[in-house]
């Protein structure tokens, strides 16, 4: 019996055929079941999570038991590059910049439940706060940050890679939520604003976690030294053009954080 045939299969198909595998992956903090896209191949899933060799072998063995019950199965080794041990993340300077940007986006995400708590879009201040938050999302999170990912970083890996396609899909799903929020503001529909902004918050919170903990460390391991230098220069060029704007938006996120931190201790999406 061979696992080899399965490591090149799409994880969503494997999980829908063998739901138990989803729970096994969950135990290893590999959240493919709740992923919005789930088109990654099993071998990529195992590679990018950078488990220890023992943990990876154990995980593969348990999955093989589900797929081939009662049979002895040969466990393939998933090829990996040397990098920092699992658990300790050290980013390259350009990737670290993206992680720093995530920190500002997370400040806004943490404010969303507070903003929505007693929302009445008919009130001028409430309406303005939603419009300003959407402006932050569209300008800082999307036009600035996601554009750096899509037009520069992800391009270094080719668009055909499933994990990257999954990230691009999530960017698009996020754009859909934001568009719907603006429409709901126009229609004065508080409920729709709450639903779509909450959905955006949950999507992005997960998306950022995946990038920080899984995708970026994997990319860092696979970028050549030359590419890291090139990325650093390309990001610097973009950053220079966005300098004043990023100061404004980062200030906005910080102000939201201070305002709602004082108001209560409750953070993050409901």
């Amino acid at each position: 019996m061979e696992m080899e045939g399965y490591i090149n299969k799409n994880i969503k198909d494997i999980i829908s055929q063998y739901p138990e595998i989803g729970s096994i992956l969950n135990e290893y903090d590999i959240a493919c079941v709740s992923c919005n896209v789930g088109t990654c191949l099993l071998k990529d899933v195992v590679e990018v999570h950078n488990l220890t060799y023992e943990a990876e072998h154990e995980l593969m063995k348990r999955m093989a038991k589900v797929i081939f019950p009662g049979n002895e199965v040969k466990i393939p080794k998933v090829k990996r590059k040397i990098g920092p041990a699992a658990g300790q993340i050290k980013y390259s300077p350009p990737v670290r910049k993206l992680v720093d940007e995530h920190a500002f986006i997370k400040k806004l995400l943490a404010a969303i439940p507070h903003i929505l708590e007693s929302l009445n879009v008919a009130k001028v201040e409430d309406r303005q706060l939603i419009i300003d938050s959407v402006d932050f999302i569209r300008s800082y999170a999307d036009k600035y940050h996601h554009a750096k990912e899509e037009e520069i970083l992800f391009k270094k890996f080719g668009e055909g890679i499933e994990i990257i396609k999954a990230m691009l899909d999530e960017h698009d799903i996020g754009r859909g939520h934001v568009k719907a929020v603006l429409e709901a503001v126009e229609a004065g529909d508080n409920q729709a604003i709450k639903e779509r902004l909450t959905a955006y918050c949950e999507l992005l919170k997960d998306h950022i976690k995946k990038e920080d903990e899984i995708l970026y460390p994997w990319m860092d391991k696979n970028l050549t030294v030359f590419q890291v230098g090139e990325l650093f220069n390309q990001f610097n060029e973009v950053d220079k053009g966005f300098e004043a704007a990023s100061r404004k938006y980062e200030g906005f996120a910080k102000a939201l954080e201070e305002r709602f931190n004082r108001a209560s201790q409750k953070i993050f999406c409901p």
Binding site: K90, S92, P93, V228
Partner: peptide, 21 residues
């Protein structure tokens, strides 16, 4: 500014540590 990385090798030439500063 430029990205700076350092690599530490053992006496037998194995990589012990590889990190960006």
């Amino acid at each position: 500014k430029v990205p700076i990385k350092y690599i530490v090798l053992s006496l037998q030439g194995e990589i012990l540590q590889e990190e960006w500063l």
